[in-house]
Amino acid sequence: MSFGGPQWPQEPQQGGQQGYGQQPRQGGQQDGQQGYGPQPGQGWGQPHGYGPQPGQGPAPDPFPGAQSGGTTPDWGALADASASRNRRKRWLVIGGGALAALVVGAIVATAVVASGKKNDEAKNGGAPTGSASATAEPTPEPTFSSVAPPPPPNPKDYISDPKKDKAPLSAEGLFPGKKLTMNKRPYRKGATASTTDCTAATQGGLGAVLKKNGCQRVLRATYVRDGVAITVGVAVFPSESAALKAKNQATGGIAPLAGAGVRDFCRATVCLRRSNSVGRYAYFTQSGFADGRKVTKADKPIFQASDDLGTFAFNQIYARGRAQASAAAGAPGE
């Protein structure tokens, strides 16, 4: 019988900002206002004559006051007119010079700003644009190794090979605590034992089978529940094949282990014996009534207890392999 055993920002647009080289209007001048100098279609006043023009009446006297006293001109008025013309010329010259200076200054400022901008772009790599340059280096794609990582260690390898199965082994380590619960059914632990004399821990012909297949040690523990007593024994072999042979050849059974509040049972009566193996371990159970009654096929508690303890033994052996495999996976160089 067998037991049951895991996904370039756009540069911000500067709204309303004046461009490079554009100068503000001077002196509050409005659009359409005339600048310095004569306007189109105009001269510097109408030409002056010394007599009436054709089709006109008497011409206005160009030198007021000069005709009243005879032929002597009014030198004061002439001097005033000449001074006025000179002042006007000076203002024209000054105004034109200022305007020229402004134009030259604007050109120079534009050149300086443009030069500074080029220098900054040369230093910082230019302003970011909304799309990647056609000559830009492409972003490298991630690469993955074509070599698959080694698989994690298999726990069964560690309970099958004595060269790997090096963890300490004892009855208290294999059957820890004072009780166990399987499928919500609690069992109290009684006595435990460990021996290298494999035949001494057996009944009937099981001792000879264990010895023939190279048994190295037998570890036992007894559990009780509701008048049912079960002894579970685990035999250690040098190989997986040896343990498998011992399971297949099994006859007789593991010897019941009394003590620690459990009296002798399965002596001179009918009890339920089972055997199985995993890795280099074979495990056995012997279940019966604590009061010595014979076991029948109708006694469900006996079969249930045998299943629970057999599953527990399998779990404990496999947990041993899992712990050693986990330790090996985390060790340097593994």
Rank of each mutant, 00 (worst) to 15 (best):
M1T: 15
F3K: 09
E11P: 02
Q14G: 15
G15K: 15
Q17C: 08
Q18H: 08
Q23K: 06
R25Q: 15
Q33T: 13
Q34D: 05
P40E: 12
W44A: 06
Q53L: 02
P54F: 11
P54V: 12
G55M: 09
Q67G: 01
G70R: 10
G70C: 01
T71S: 02
D74F: 01
D74A: 05
N86I: 13
R90T: 14
W91D: 15
W91G: 15
L92A: 13
I94H: 11
I94N: 14
V103T: 04
A106V: 07
A109I: 11
V113H: 01
K117Q: 10
E121K: 00
P128Y: 02
S133E: 14
E137W: 10
P150Y: 03
P155R: 04
D157S: 07
D157M: 04
S160V: 02
D161K: 05
N183D: 04
K189F: 00
T192E: 06
C198Q: 00
Q216W: 07
R217G: 13
A221Y: 04
Y223E: 05
L244H: 00
K245W: 03
T251I: 05
G252C: 01
A255E: 08
L257D: 01
G261N: 07
D264A: 13
L272P: 06
R274E: 14
N276E: 06
F284C: 11
K297R: 14
A298Y: 00
D299K: 01
P301R: 08
S306I: 08
F314Y: 06
N315H: 08
A325Y: 09
S326D: 15
G330F: 02
